[in-house]
């Protein structure tokens, strides 16, 4: 499995996994995507969801299961995951573009409306993105949630942006 040999999950490994929504659900509106596949004692995502859409139960090493019908794609879970493994994808934003919201803990933060380099799970730049929102809240405890718009065809690949270099 790519995760233990290379350090990233492939799309093939994710589709059909318990935290990954169906294509039909993606086409209904924003929804959470949980890319967490290992049995580690961890469950803050379960408590974070107000819609009770994430289920772990006991023992807490259970892999989170996403109830895609209960999930409204609000993104509250994104900042709660210590592994930074939860995203919100919106495939219904417009005809050409979709949105991806992801956790970001680097400085400097991108500026709203700026153009950024969108990267896939391997850190490879796959397209450019436009920053829609940079969300900070005391409850996020220093994890920013960034939402970018990218071309729809890349939405299953994009999971972040290339870090912005400072001048030095």
């Amino acid at each position: 499995m790519a995760l233990e040999k290379k350090g990233y999950l492939t799309k093939k490994e994710l589709i059909g996994s318990s935290g990954y929504p169906s294509e039909e659900r993606f086409n209904r509106g924003p929804v959470a995507v949980i890319e967490c596949s290992e049995a580690i004692p961890c469950n803050p995502c379960e408590a974070a969801c107000k819609q009770k859409a994430i289920k772990i139960g006991k023992p807490i090493i259970n892999i989170p299961v996403l109830d895609e019908d209960l999930c409204i794609g609000c993104g509250l879970c994104i900042s709660r995951c210590p592994g930074l493994a939860i995203f919100v994808v919106n495939k219904t934003y417009s005809d050409k573009e979709g949105l991806i919201s992801f956790p970001y803990e680097y400085w400097p933060l991108p500026v709203t409306d700026s153009i950024v380099k969108a990267v896939d799970r391997k850190g490879k730049v796959v397209c450019s993105g436009r920053v829609i929102k940079v969300f900070n809240n005391k409850k996020f405890d220093l994890t920013s949630i960034i939402t970018i718009a990218v071309t729809k065809s890349k939405l299953d690949e994009v999971r972040g942006i290339k870090r912005i270099k400072t001048c030095t």
Binding site: G7, Y8, S37, G83, G123
Partner: peptide, 18 residues
């Protein structure tokens, strides 16, 4: 022959191109 730490920690740095 395999990464020792958690997959999610590895994924974070893979996403950063490491």
């Amino acid at each position: 022959q395999k990464i020792g730490g958690y997959g999610v920690h590895a994924s974070k740095i893979s996403r950063a191109g490491v």
